[in-house]
Amino acid sequence: MISIGLTGWGDHPTLYSTVTTARDKLFDYSGHFPIVEVDTSFYSIPNNQNIEKWCHDTPANFQFIVKAYQGITGHLRDDLPYETRNDMFQAFLQCANTFQRFGKLAMVLVQFPPWFDCTAKNVNYIRYVKEQLPDLPLAIEFRNQTWYAPQMREKTLQFLQEQSFIHTVCDEPQAGVGSVPLVPVATANKVLFRIHGRNVHGWRNSGNAHNWRKVRFLYDYNEEELQSLSSYVKQLRQQAQDVYVLFNNNSDYHAAPNAQRLKEILGLHFENLSPKQLNIFEGEF
């Protein structure tokens, strides 16, 4: 099965009805795509009340890809807002288990920072994360080229496969050690394909903390590029039972139309989506 979606549901204006409130955006989103990435969980672990609402607001077969909290991935280093590291993992585990209870957890995305390089220490930390989050489908995304260096690429993929980790394949700018090449290899029965755009300048020069997202992911894939991406999706489908594709190039709202066009190229039809809301005057005259 091939599923296509976006990172987050709150910032895609082409998907919403004119009467959609912020509270109803997920419902409208789920009328277009069967999966979504919960990116807010990277910044703060959501509470059960919000998770239960999200699960109730979406169709029975809708799936969430939940981004691991930044304290887990090492982005916060040792500056954790929890008394102990164990408390942090337990809080996130409770969050993931709530999605699982509704049958809506596709996977947990563990995205490591650019400085997380291929060392024995970091390999052991990945094993530690798995021990702390048992029985969860974990997808690993690297952002450091050393994991895919010629002498390490096969060892990295073998490690992911042996540990039953889901490989996160990335399409992103090739802008030095802090980006990774596109390696279309599945290491489990699921594979995640995250599409970040190809804005090399923005990736290298993302500006200050306030506007970096508006620069880094500013990219609109053209038809030829989308056709090429479709070939990678087909290649991954030959290796894995389920392929999850997420567009993250949304600095100027390109993610949704790019995703919809890829869906057309692949000839996909997503069933059992939420009904689309009508505009307030639609059908009145």
Rank of each mutant, 00 (worst) to 15 (best):
K276C: 09
S41T: 06
P13Q: 15
P81L: 13
F62T: 03
F281M: 15
V129A: 09
G283Q: 06
P173V: 14
S164W: 00
P81Y: 15
H167W: 14
Y125N: 15
F142R: 12
N47A: 12
D79K: 15
S30L: 03
E83S: 10
Y125A: 13
G178D: 12
Q227E: 03
G267K: 09
A255E: 06
A22D: 07
S274W: 07
F62M: 15
Y232D: 01
Q70L: 14
F281N: 08
E284H: 12
G74H: 01
L226S: 10
S3Q: 13
Q227M: 15
V169I: 09
P134F: 03
L6R: 14
S164H: 04
P59A: 10
F27L: 04
V215E: 10
Y244K: 09
Y232M: 00
R237I: 11
C170V: 08
T168F: 14
A91D: 06
F27A: 11
S231M: 09
R127Y: 07
Y219L: 03
E37S: 12
L246D: 15
S274N: 05
K276Y: 04
D24P: 08
V108S: 09
G267Q: 13
F62L: 03
A255V: 04
N122H: 03
F33H: 01
R127C: 05
T21H: 11
V233I: 07
V215K: 09
